[in-house]
Computed example of a mutant assay.
Amino acid sequence: MENLLSGYRRFRHTVWPSRRERFEALAKLGQKPETLVIACSDSRVDPAMVFDVGPGELFIVRNVANLVPPYEEDTAFHGTSAAIEFAVRVLGVRNIIVMGHAMCGGIHALLHPASAERLDFMSSWVEIAAEARDRVLACEPVEEEQQTLCELEAIKLSLRNLMTFRWIASRVNEGSLTLHGTSFDIRTGVLSRLNDAGDFVPAE
């Protein structure tokens, strides 16, 4: 904890003074980000750092394996869906980015269920992407490629699941909202984007 408090003190003495006006404007006028990023909780992947943006520019939702569940109307807890709804229906974001990454532990648990058996919630959560896993394994890739392929297929599945939210689909169809898929390789620092052909290509 002490290292975090030391970081806070550096923030107060160096970052805060230079960005005070920005924070004061955000406090007075409220947030108006144009982009929602749905990213993984992995500590090695920071969307704000990757996109080099400041406070107020991104609305970020993070969960294990950057998954979007399909739209469901029930009384269960829907933390990810609630955050998506707030970003779209209240803040009016114009872009949604599903941002996956290499070496994702959630995708590893999806491919190797035994690794998460002792955990209370992981197994059922990553099963949201069961279709992505099954699609990859049906192609019988070599084991070394399964992880990467499943990470990319899970991004595509989350994008399809976003379209099951009627207020997302309507905005996409009218052109006021655009969906994007990206994957960040923490080994190389390269961000890849999903193109219209269904392939991930370097954004550079």
Rank of each mutant, 00 (worst) to 15 (best):
E140K: 15
P141Q: 10
P141M: 05
V142M: 14
V142K: 15
V142G: 14
V142D: 15
E144K: 15
E144W: 09
E144G: 08
Q146S: 13
T148H: 11
T148E: 15
T148V: 11
T148A: 12
T148I: 11
T148Y: 07
L149R: 14
L149W: 07
C150A: 09
C150E: 10
C150L: 03
E151H: 03
E151Q: 08
E151I: 10
L152P: 02
L152A: 05
L152T: 06
L152Q: 12
E153A: 11
A154E: 03
A154M: 08
A154Y: 03
I155R: 06
K156C: 05
L157M: 04
L157A: 03
L157R: 04
L157E: 02
L157N: 08
L157P: 05
S158R: 05
S158M: 01
S158P: 05
S158F: 01
N161Q: 05
N161A: 02
N161K: 07
L162Y: 06
L162F: 03
L162A: 05
M163E: 13
M163G: 09
M163L: 15
T164H: 06
F165K: 14
F165P: 05
F165I: 11
F165D: 08
R166D: 14
W167C: 11
W167Y: 15
I168C: 09
I168E: 03
A169P: 09
A169Q: 14
R171H: 04
R171N: 10
R171T: 05
V172E: 00
V172A: 02
V172F: 00
V172D: 00
V172W: 00
V172C: 03
N173C: 11
N173P: 06
N173L: 13
N173Y: 07
N173S: 14
E174Q: 15
E174S: 13
E174C: 10
G175Q: 09
G175A: 09
G175M: 07
S176F: 02
S176Q: 12
S176E: 11
S176I: 13
S176Y: 05
L177V: 01
L177R: 00
L177G: 00
L177P: 01
L177A: 00
T178S: 05
T178V: 15
L179E: 00
L179C: 00
L179A: 00
L179S: 01
H180P: 00
H180Y: 02
H180K: 01
G181D: 00
G181Y: 03
T182S: 11
T182V: 14
T182M: 15
T182A: 12
S183I: 15
S183F: 14
S183E: 12
S183R: 15
F184T: 08
F184V: 06
D185H: 02
D185M: 04
I186D: 12
I186M: 13
I186N: 09
I186Y: 14
R187F: 09
R187L: 14
R187T: 12
T188Y: 03
T188V: 06
T188M: 08
G189I: 13
G189P: 14
G189M: 10
G189Q: 10
G189A: 12
V190E: 11
V190H: 02
V190R: 07
L191V: 11
L191P: 01
L191K: 01
L191E: 00
L191Q: 05
L191R: 04
